[in-house]
């Protein structure tokens, strides 16, 4: 087998500061954005948006940590973490949301804990059955 050192790129996409991406960008792995993106962003892995990043796009990822600016909707399948420097001008949808003091959100926020909702539904069904 070929040998590959630890830490080699694999599926990871990096958009560095000073680089502009325009169009429908998608990645099967993790994505780190330090630069500018215009269009749409879809990461099947985790997404990191750093402080220098400027995104004018709808964004989706498995998990996301945002420290930069996003003008567009953001959807995280699992966890979304907004750091103090984050500015979101769009709607948010995720399962778990963490917001640090200083983060700016301008839009609707939908946090749906499917397990909790399912548990609630189960409880309601049991109560109805007992009644």
């Amino acid at each position: 087998m070929f040998k590959k050192e630890e830490g080699a790129a694999g599926n990871e996409t990096i958009i560095a500061n000073g680089v502009k991406v325009e169009g429908d960008f998608s990645s099967p792995g993790n994505v780190r954005i330090d630069g500018t993106v215009i269009g749409s962003v879809k990461a099947e892995g985790d997404l990191i948006v750093t402080e220098t990043a400027v995104i004018q796009a709808d964004v989706s990822a498995a998990n996301a940590v945002v420290a930069g600016e996003i003008k567009g909707d953001i959807a995280a399948v699992e966890k979304l973490e907004l750091l103090g420097t984050a500015k979101i001008h769009g709607n948010i949808a995720c399962r778990t949301l963490t917001v640090e003091a200083g983060a700016v959100i301008s839009g609707n926020c939908q946090v749906a804990q499917e397990r909790a909702a399912a548990r609630e539904r189960t409880r309601e069904t049991k109560v109805e059955a007992a009644a």
């Binding site: 080699a8 680089v19 502009k20 991406v21 325009e22 169009g23």
Partner: peptide, 22 residues
Amino acid sequence: RYTVSPENGGEICISNFSMDPA
């Protein structure tokens, strides 16, 4: 699907088999 451009000029390298282990 998308374009990539360095905002202040730069280099483009397309790698199939990196000479560097990392």
